[in-house]
Structures are given as structure tokens and as C-alpha cells.
Amino acid sequence: MLITPAFAQAAAGGDTNSMLMSLLPFALIFVIMYFLILRPQQKKVKEHAELVKNIRRGDTVVTSGGLVGKVTKVVDDDQIEFEISDGVRVRQMRQMISGVRAKGEPAKEKADTAKDETSAS
């Protein structure tokens, strides 16, 4: 017998309060990770899905690859066709659209340069 009865009894008799306290840090880490990472990511995914779903003909879109063009045709639920130059049309998966500008919304750079020119005069 290598283990004395005193050691065997101490190992078998565990306190439930100490076990709960040892699991508490893991639970806190999970709660913190949920609020800092998972919840904002889910919100961002929902916003992107809504943005992609509401693409209409005439909208200006920006793809994840950096192409900017005007939507000429909504092919189906998965694809759109947009024009990046006169006579150059591209088909793109809807999920690869990173941004949509409304028909009348000006580009931010043009608006900023116009403000700079008027303030410089």
C-alpha cells in the first residue's frame, strides 16, 4: 500500500464551494468574450446581410476587391451586375459587396475637396 488512508480520504472529500470558485474564472472569461467579440460580430453580420439584401438598380456599390460601380441589373438572389466603366459590366456575388452608396449620395472625397477649395478662397 503506497498511499496512506489519510491522503486517500483528503483527496476524495472535495468541497463543492471550492469547485465552484475554481470554475468561476472560466465563466467570467466566457461572458467577457461574448460581450467583446461574439455579440458585436453577430451585429456586424446582420447589418451586412441587410445591406446586401437591399441592393437595387442604380445604387453605387463598392466591392471587397475595391471596384466601384453602378448596379445595372440584379441577376438573382446571389449575383448582381454592375458597370465599372462605359460598356464594361461585371457580375459579382452579393456577399462580396462591402459597401453601398445611395443614388444621390456624393463621394466623400469630392465633398471634402469642395469644402477645402471654398475655405482657401
Rank of each mutant, 00 (worst) to 15 (best):
M1H: 04
L2C: 10
L2W: 13
I3E: 01
T4K: 02
T4L: 01
P5Y: 01
A6Q: 01
A6D: 01
A8E: 00
A8V: 00
Q9S: 00
Q9L: 00
Q9A: 00
Q9P: 00
Q9E: 00
A10Y: 01
A10D: 03
A11K: 01
G13I: 14
G14N: 03
T16F: 08
T16D: 07
T16H: 07
S18C: 05
S18W: 09
M19I: 13
L20V: 04
S22K: 12
S22H: 12
S22M: 13
L23P: 06
L23H: 14
L24A: 15
P25N: 08
F26A: 11
A27D: 03
I29A: 15
I29T: 14
F30Y: 13
V31T: 05
I32E: 02
M33E: 14
Y34H: 08
L36P: 03
L38M: 03
L38S: 03
L38I: 04
L38N: 02
R39H: 11
R39N: 09
Q42T: 06
V45P: 04
E47K: 15
H48Y: 10
A49H: 11
E50I: 08
K53T: 06
N54D: 12
I55S: 06
R57F: 09
R57T: 15
R57V: 13
D59A: 10
D59V: 08
D59C: 13
T60C: 07
V62R: 12
T63A: 11
S64Q: 14
S64M: 14
G66M: 08
G66I: 04
L67Q: 11
L67S: 12
G69N: 12
G69C: 11
V71R: 02
T72Q: 05
T72G: 07
T72H: 04
K73L: 09
K73D: 11
K73G: 05
V75A: 04
D76L: 05
D76Q: 03
D76Y: 03
D76M: 04
Q79C: 05
I80E: 01
F82N: 04
I84D: 08
I84A: 13
I84N: 11
D86R: 03
G87P: 00
V88H: 03
V90D: 02
Q92D: 06
R94A: 02
R94S: 02
Q95E: 06
Q95I: 03
Q95R: 11
I97E: 07
S98G: 11
S98M: 10
V100E: 06
V100F: 04
R101K: 14
K103D: 11
K103Y: 13
K108N: 01
E109N: 08
D112S: 10
D112Y: 07
D112Q: 09
T113F: 14
A114V: 06
K115D: 13
S119Y: 03
S119H: 06
A120D: 06
A120C: 02
S121E: 00
